[in-house]
């Protein structure tokens, strides 16, 4: 699974990246996590509110930092709402 965290470096973007790494490590999820900070790259996802979480090229969360519990659900079941 390819996970991307989109964010230009604000506080919330950092917490989303941290939370994602935590959840992935705790649940032994096989994933590569990359942080996308370049605004031009972020715009390619048509995201206007950062931070955003992208799984395999699909935007699954934007503009907020979900709880670890919700993140776990998103990452393990791939059921999500934007």
């Amino acid at each position: 699974m390819n996970i991307q965290v989109l964010g230009t470096g604000c506080q919330k973007c950092k917490s989303l990246e941290k939370a994602t790494r935590e959840v992935v490590a705790q649940n032994n999820i096989d994933a590569t996590i990359t942080k996308v900070e370049d605004i031009v790259e972020i715009m390619k996802f048509n995201v206007m509110t950062t931070p955003a979480l992208v799984i395999d090229g699909k935007v699954v969360v934007k503009g907020r930092v979900p709880s670890n519990e919700e993140l776990k659900q998103i990452l393990t079941t791939k059921i999500y709402m934007i």
Binding site: T8, Q11, C13, N46, M48, T49, T50, G63
Partner: peptide, 13 residues
């Protein structure tokens, strides 16, 4: 909902 950290992506969008 608006946060000043999103001002740039919002402006571009």
């Amino acid at each position: 909902p608006f946060c000043s950290c999103s001002a740039i992506p919002l402006f571009l969008g």
